[in-house]
Lab assay of single mutants.
Amino acid sequence: SDYEVNVNGIHHRFHNISEELIKFIEEALRRGEDLREIIKKVRELLG
């Protein structure tokens, strides 16, 4: 049904976003950045 496609589409989009965010955060932590600064950047990215 349309509803299922829609829900799956939304889930898929969020899954991709969270994968990208996790990579972004892991790389920043590897560079020794402060978690609070990383979260601030993530918030800015998400608008």
Rank of each mutant, 00 (worst) to 15 (best):
H11D: 09
E26W: 04
N8I: 01
L45H: 11
G47S: 13
E44T: 12
I22Q: 05
E4H: 07
F24N: 08
G9K: 01
K41G: 08
G32I: 03
K40R: 13
V42M: 08
H15P: 08
E26R: 06
K40L: 14
N6H: 08
A28N: 15
I38T: 07
I10A: 10
G9W: 00
L46F: 06
R30C: 06
E37L: 10
E26V: 07
K23C: 03
E27K: 08
D34G: 13
V5A: 03
I38E: 01
I25K: 00
S1Q: 13
F24K: 08
I17C: 02
E20Y: 07
F14Y: 02
I38Q: 02
I10N: 11
E27I: 11
E37H: 12
H11N: 09
N8L: 01
I17K: 00
H15M: 08
V7Y: 04
I17F: 02
E26L: 07
R36W: 13
E26S: 06
L21E: 09
V5Y: 02
H11K: 11
E19D: 12
I10S: 12
N16K: 02
E19L: 11
F24Y: 14
E27G: 12
L35C: 04
E20A: 12
E19V: 15
I22C: 01
E33Y: 04
L35E: 03
N8T: 02
E37W: 10
F14H: 00
H12K: 02
E44M: 12
G9M: 01
L29S: 05
I25R: 00
G47V: 11
H12V: 12
E33D: 13
V7T: 04
S1F: 14
G9Q: 02
L21F: 06
H15K: 10
E27A: 14
H15L: 10
F14P: 02
K41Q: 14
I38V: 13
G32C: 03
Y3W: 09
L45A: 13
H15R: 07
H12M: 03
L35A: 12
I39R: 04
L21T: 13
E27T: 14
D34E: 09
I17N: 01
E44H: 13
D2M: 03
L45V: 11
L45Y: 07
H12G: 05
E44W: 09
R13E: 15
V42E: 02
I22T: 04
I39G: 04
L21G: 10
E44R: 09
R36E: 09
L46K: 13
R30I: 14
E44C: 11
H12R: 00
I39Q: 06
E26K: 10
L29Y: 04
I10P: 03
H15G: 09
R30Y: 14
I25M: 04
N16L: 03
L45F: 09
E20P: 09
E33H: 12
F24E: 07
I10E: 15
K23R: 10
E27Q: 10
E20T: 13
F14K: 01
L21K: 05
R30D: 10
L45G: 10
G32T: 09
H11S: 09
H11Q: 07
L45S: 11
A28P: 01
K23T: 07
I38P: 01
H12E: 12
E33W: 04
I25S: 00
L46M: 15
D2V: 02
H15D: 11
V5S: 01
I25F: 05
N6F: 02
E4N: 05
V7S: 06
E37V: 09
D2F: 04
R31H: 13
S1P: 05
S1K: 14
F14S: 01
R30E: 13
E37S: 13
E44L: 10
I25P: 00
F14T: 00
H15W: 01
V7L: 07
I38G: 00
V42C: 02
E19H: 12
V7F: 06
L46S: 14
R30S: 13
Y3A: 00
R31F: 13
F14R: 00
E20F: 11
F24A: 08
V7N: 05
V7W: 06
R43I: 11
N6W: 01
V42H: 04
I22K: 07
R36Q: 15
F24R: 06
G32H: 14
R31K: 14
V5M: 03
G9F: 00
R43K: 10
E33P: 05
V7G: 05
R31C: 03
N6C: 04
N6A: 05
I39N: 03
L29N: 05
S18Q: 06
R43M: 10
E4Y: 01
F14C: 01
N6T: 13
E37C: 06
H15V: 09
I38N: 01
F24D: 05
L29W: 04
N6S: 08
K41V: 11
F14G: 01
G47K: 12
F14N: 00
D2S: 04
S18H: 05
R36L: 09
L45P: 08
S18T: 09
E33R: 11
R31L: 12
E27H: 12
I10L: 07
L46H: 12
S1N: 11
G32N: 15
E37Y: 12
H12P: 01
E19R: 06
S18E: 05
G47P: 15
G9T: 02
V7D: 04
E26D: 13
G47F: 05
N6E: 13
E37T: 10
I39L: 07
G9C: 03
R43T: 15
H15E: 14
Y3N: 01
H15C: 03
D2Y: 08
D2R: 00
G47H: 11
E19S: 08
I25E: 00
E33C: 06
R36G: 10
K23E: 13
L45W: 06
A28D: 10
N8V: 00
I10M: 15
F24S: 06
R43H: 15
G32K: 11
E37Q: 11
K40M: 14
R31T: 09
K40S: 09
I17H: 00
R43Q: 10
R36V: 07
G9D: 07
G47L: 15
I25A: 02
F14E: 02
V42K: 02
E26I: 08
I39M: 02
Y3T: 01
R13D: 13
V5E: 01
E44V: 13
L46A: 12
F24G: 05
Y3V: 02
L45T: 09
E44Y: 07
I38S: 02
I38C: 02
G32Y: 07
L21D: 07
E4S: 04
K23W: 11
V5G: 00
R31Y: 10
E19G: 08
D34H: 08
R13H: 15
H15A: 12
K23H: 12
G9I: 02
H11G: 02
D34R: 07
I25N: 00
N16S: 06
H11E: 08
I39W: 01
G47N: 12
I38M: 05
I22V: 08
R43G: 13
L45Q: 14
H15N: 12
H11A: 06
E37G: 11
D34M: 11
H12I: 14
I25Y: 01
I22S: 03
N6G: 03
E26C: 03
H11T: 11
E44Q: 12
L46N: 14
R36A: 12
I10Y: 01
I39S: 04
N6P: 02
A28V: 06
K41W: 08
I38L: 10
E27R: 07
E4Q: 04
I25W: 01
L35D: 03
L45M: 12
I17A: 09
F24V: 09
E33M: 13
R30V: 13
E44S: 13
V5F: 06
E27Y: 05
F24M: 11
A28M: 09
N6K: 09
L35T: 10
R13Y: 12
E27P: 00
L46D: 15
I39A: 08
A28Q: 15
S18W: 03
F14A: 00
R30G: 11
I38F: 03
H12S: 03
A28R: 08
Y3H: 03
N16Q: 04
K41E: 07
I22W: 05
S18K: 05
I39E: 07
K23Q: 11
V42L: 09
L46C: 05
L46V: 15
D2A: 03
L35K: 02
H12F: 03
G32E: 14
G9A: 01
G9S: 03
N8Y: 00
K41A: 14
G47R: 08
H15Y: 03
R31M: 08
D34K: 06
V42D: 01
L21M: 10
R13V: 15
L35N: 02
A28I: 07
L45E: 07
I10D: 15
E4T: 08
K40D: 13
I10H: 15
R31A: 15
I38K: 01
I38W: 03
D2W: 06
K41M: 11
E19M: 06
H12Y: 03
L35H: 03
E20H: 10
E4M: 03
D34Q: 11
I25H: 00
Y3D: 00
R31V: 11
K23A: 15
G32A: 14
R30A: 07
N8H: 07
V5W: 01
V7A: 06
D2L: 00
N6R: 10
L21N: 08
R43S: 14
I17V: 15
A28S: 11
E27V: 11
I17S: 04
E19A: 09
N6V: 11
S1A: 11
E20S: 11
N8R: 04
S18V: 05
S18C: 03
V42Q: 02
S18L: 04
L29V: 14
L21S: 09
F14I: 02
R36C: 14
I17T: 03
V42T: 07
V42Y: 04
L45K: 10
S1I: 15
K40N: 15
R43E: 15
E20L: 10
I10Q: 15
S18F: 05
V7H: 10
R43P: 08
N8M: 00
I10K: 10
I22M: 05
R13F: 15
S1G: 09
L46Y: 05
H11M: 08
